[in-house]
């Protein structure tokens, strides 16, 4: 009798807590979308920000976010694939491998503000890149590398050893086997991880405030020569991203419609993250089905 009642209460409590979890997510999403979406318009998405007056947009920040994302992925994807291959295929059980694994562990647990400050010191100041896209992209690379590398390593490890033996027994080198047989098979996992990593990078701000900078000078979208100072592609210009913008206008408080702009920008950010999340799953499954020929 008594224990039955107990069971009921305990189960009820757990249902309640799980419900709270869902409510939290629902609240966050609804709050952001409800408050933000009304401000999101074509004008908002494409026009530059304004400092002391309302009505500004997030056009340049949005462009900067994507440009930084692409640049940092271009740097980090090859490095993480190389390192992932090393760890899954070549690393022997010795002190060197231990050192590498410990380093990756430490890097992945570093606060992103520390990564940002390191980038500030090394890329912006010592290397003379200043507050720039390039400096920001390098900082994001540092931030993203450990997780991408681990993902590549795990995806490669999930492919059966018999596939490697098949390649080797045909007289292929280990490298060719990995590159042409194992990686294609591990592609669904690798790509899913890359897209999730891209989502993480897209929302990152702390690593960027002292590397890519906190200002978004006007861009001339008619001149795409990367060496032209106001060119959107110029990698040496400062580039406030969407995430940094949200932080900046909230902590400065000089923009009259800061909270509307933040809500709109947050909504855009959240939608981007949702797209990255679902996109990762969808693309991963899609490639997997295509490769294995199952429907």
């Amino acid at each position: 009798m008594d224990s039955k009642k107990w069971d009921k209460i305990a189960t009820g409590v757990l249902y309640f807590i799980a419900g709270v979890m869902i409510l939290i997510l629902a609240f966050l999403l609804i709050f952001i979308l409800w408050n933000g979406l009304p401000h999101v318009s074509w004008h908002f998405l494409t026009s530059p920000a304004k400092s002391f007056q309302s009505g500004g947009g997030i056009g340049i920040q949005l462009f900067n976010s994507f440009y930084l994302l692409i640049l940092s992925m271009l740097i980090s994807i090859p490095i993480s694939i190389g390192a992932g291959i090393y760890l899954s295929e070549y690393a022997k059980k010795n002190w060197l491998t231990n050192l590498v694994r410990t380093s990756i562990d430490i890097l992945s647990s570093l606060p992103s503000i520390v990564v940002g400050l390191f980038g500030f010191l090394v890329f912006s100041i010592s290397a003379g890149l200043g507050f720039s896209i390039l400096s920001g992209a390098l900082a994001l690379t540092v931030f993203n590398l450990p997780l991408l590398t681990r993902n590549v390593e795990e995806s490669l490890r999930s492919i059966s050893g018999s596939q490697r033996e098949a390649g080797l027994a045909l007289g292929l080198s280990k490298w060719e086997t990995v590159l042409k047989i194992i990686i294609p098979e591990a592609l669904p996992g690798i790509i899913t991880g890359m897209i999730l990593g891209a989502g993480r990078v897209f929302g990152e701000a702390a690593a960027l405030i002292y590397t890519a900078g906190q200002s978004a000078p006007p861009l001339d979208f008619t001149n795409w020569n990367p060496f032209y100072i106001a060119s959107p592609l110029n990698p040496l210009r400062p580039a406030e991203t969407l995430a940094v913008h949200i932080w900046k206008i909230n902590s400065e408080g000089i923009m009259p419609d800061a909270s509307q702009v933040s809500a709109g920008a947050s909504a855009v950010l959240i939608i981007a993250v949702l797209i990255f999340n679902f996109g990762a799953r969808y693309v991963g499954n899609h490639i997997y089905r295509k490769m294995t020929g199952t429907k």
């Binding site: 490095i79 993480s80 990756i104 890097l107 520390v114 590398l145 080198s173 280990k174």
Partner: peptide, 25 residues
């Protein structure tokens, strides 16, 4: 043989980059 040699170097360099970053941080 050559591709294997190249591959070992490439993958090792990538790994070394990460370790170097951590050490320099």
């Amino acid at each position: 043989t050559r591709s294997e040699f190249r591959g070992r170097i490439i993958s090792f360099v990538c790994t070394a980059i990460i370790v170097t970053v951590v050490v320099s941080i």
